[in-house]
Design a protein around this nucleic acid. Structure first.
Length: 553
RNA sequence: GCGCCUGUAGCUCAGCUGGAUAGAGCAACGGACUUCUAAUCCGUAGGUCAGAGGUUCGAAUCCUCUCAGGCGUGCCA
């Protein structure tokens, strides 16, 4: 609706210029807003105030000119000039009624748009090291990345979900050593387990499987050889577990990209050579440095250490170079917020590749403060005292977990209380939204029994939809596509979460004041149609978040 | 020291990229079920948008400074 209004207003302004009543060289961007207060209309624009300077006229005068040129428009009940020069639009009810039909017509694709058409985007998320199971922090990253990907897709982008496997660094060696020691321990040798090894019980589980598989085969093998083998096997087992946990969480990556493969295929060497050729690297004290300061970083960064070994940063250069070579227009990385210091250097890399730094979007996901009955739960991979994603999903369910992870904007810290997430009451937002959907389904069941549901809604009259609750619902439903669009272009899934809570609230208010099933068949049909559209929108929004829309609760 | 993020109701947080009288959910208080699911709704109360300047028709939003908190500042990953 906003779009339509913007179009009409644009035509109107052109008309004003043609007949000389406005003289501005160019027309500023037309901003249409939904006013905070209903008495200010369905929509409002500040265009007259924006033009005041160039027109050298009072905003209200300009507004009058514009409004007089809108006389022929058939959309409006009335148009008012208010305050310092706002133009407030009051749309006719039947215009809204027609807008509502668009919801049902679009059905499952209501909310989709074409803003991203023709653009390819990669969303890389989770990418946890294969050295331990996913914890709750990874869960938030998983929910966020997955929802961002779904929302981008709904906005017309072509989207690929990717997981980057850090299988090339020291941490794999640490994993191998950890498993090896537990293996020896299980075979009866007394060992000292170092603090810098992975402490979790899952290491013992892996070692136990290896004992079953190999017996004492590696008991007297050179430690170096055994550690190498165990690192590989352990990493595979853990990665399988990660994949399973993600699937249970409803997250499926299209591609799994191995860091090691960048070395095997020579991409790391190629990337370094390419950067060197561009004059972005230099040697200093035996190490090779990247001039990230040329692009605004605080200091230059080491790519190859004095001992000849590449850094993690080198892999990242090669990886992001490779991403863009695959033809993505935009690359989205979802990181834990503790990595925020790496943003400037990676933006530098992107610019070094000759791309706009905006082509790389980094979403920083803040910590999840997990609480159980108000008591904070400590989380640390090293000490092994973490709460895994699987435990959380098993306890509160997939829907509640995903919804909770997406309730706040990702760069603000999240308090996640397990008891609240399980509660089946009004305090729990996920139930509030899902309940709205289930309630509508229940009404339809009842209406069906009474034969009130039209076989085809296309021909029914909506003229009787006019209560405040009905109109509020219709208007809010109309704004769903632009909410999705804004959510996509800003990479902010929480906007959908908030939208759904508000939509559910509008429905519940409607429900308590308006009876759907009644004697007036025409009214019942119209209200059923309204609810059909509401349920459709609730469902579409929930699916974008990866949350189910139950028909019965 | 330097850099990034945050600071909005008692608590947890929104605020559509500069609009009109700052919103929601919890918590508190008072109401509403012979009626399509009370897992719901309605009402009341609650504010120096951390503070001070600046930019302009207009600032929670933009710029500067101050204060408070978090994080980062490896030739770790």
């Amino acid at each position: 609706m906003k779009k339509l209004l913007r179009e009409r207003l644009g035509n109107c302004l052109e008309g004003c210029r043609t007949d000389g009543s406005l003289t501005s060289g160019r027309i500023p961007e037309i901003v249409i807003e939904v006013p905070a207060h209903a008495e200010h209309g369905d929509f409002a624009t500040n265009i007259a105030m924006l033009m005041a300077r160039e027109e050298k006229k009072a905003p209200r005068k300009i507004a009058e000119t514009i409004v007089s040129h809108l006389a022929g428009e058939d959309l409006f009940d009335r148009v008012e000039i208010a305050g310092p020069g706002f133009i407030n639009f009051f749309l006719r009810k039947d215009v809204w009624h027609e807008a509502l039909r668009a919801v049902a017509a679009a059905g499952d694709s209501y909310g989709r748009s074409l803003v991203g058409k023709g653009k390819r985007v990669q969303v890389e998320f989770v990418s946890a090291n294969p050295t331990g199971p996913l914890h709750i922090g990874h869960g938030r990253g998983a929910a966020t990345g997955d929802a961002v990907a779904s929302i981008l897709k709904a906005a017309g982008f072509e989207v690929v979900r990717e997981y980057y496997i850090n299988d090339a660094g020291n941490q794999m060696d640490t994993l191998g050593r950890s498993v090896h020691l537990r293996y020896l321990e299980l075979l009866g040798r007394s060992i000292e387990f170092p603090a810098d090894c992975y402490q979790g019980d899952y290491i013992r589980d892996i070692a136990r499987d290896l004992v079953t598989k190999f017996g004492s085969k590696y008991q007297d093998a050179p430690a170096e050889e055994a550690i190498k083998v165990f690192a590989k096997l352990g990493g595979d087992v853990i990665l399988d577990g990660i994949k399973r946990d993600l699937e249970d969480f409803g997250v499926v990556h299209d591609t799994w990209f191995s860091e090691q493969s960048l070395f095997d295929s020579g991409q790391v060497t190629k990337a370094i050579e390419s950067m060197r050729a561009k004059g972005l690297l230099y040697e200093h004290e035996d190490a090779l440095w990247f001039r990230t300061t040329d692009f605004g970083d605080d200091k230059d960064r080491v790519v190859v250490r004095g001992n000849g070994v590449t850094t993690y940063f080198a892999s990242d250069i090669a990886y992001h170079r490779e991403k863009f070579q695959r033809g993505f227009d935009w690359v989205v990385d979802v990181w834990g917020a503790d990595h925020h210091g790496y943003v400037p250097r990676l933006k530098a890399v992107v610019q070094g590749l000759g791309r706009d730094p905006g082509d790389l979007k980094i979403i920083l996901v803040q910590l999840v403060a997990l609480q159980r009955d108000g008591v904070p739960v400590a989380m640390s991979t090293r000490s092994g005292e973490f709460v895994t994603l699987k435990e959380v999903v098993d306890e509160v369910g997939r829907d509640a977990a995903r919804f909770f992870f997406l309730m706040r904007r990702s760069d603000s810290q999240l308090d996640f209380d397990l008891e609240l997430a399980k509660r089946e009451s009004t305090e729990n937002p996920v139930y509030y939204v899902q309940y709205a959907h289930a309630r509508i389904c229940s009404i339809f069941e009842n209406a069906e029994e009474k034969g009130l549901v039209p076989a085809d809604f296309a021909g029914i009259s909506l003229a009787k939809l006019e209560t405040a609750e009905e109109m509020a619902l219709i208007k809010f439903l109309d704004s769903f596509p632009e909410t999705v669009e804004g959510s996509a272009l800003n990479f902010e899934p929480h906007r959908i979460t908030y939208y759904l809570q508000e939509l559910a609230g509008l429905f519940h208010s409607f429900y308590n004041r308006n009876r759907v099933i009644g004697d007036d068949a025409e009214l019942s049909a119209a209200r059923l149609f309204l609810l059909k559209c509401t349920a459709q929108t609730l469902k579409n929004g929930l699916l974008l978040l990866g949350v189910s829309a139950p028909e019965r609760m």
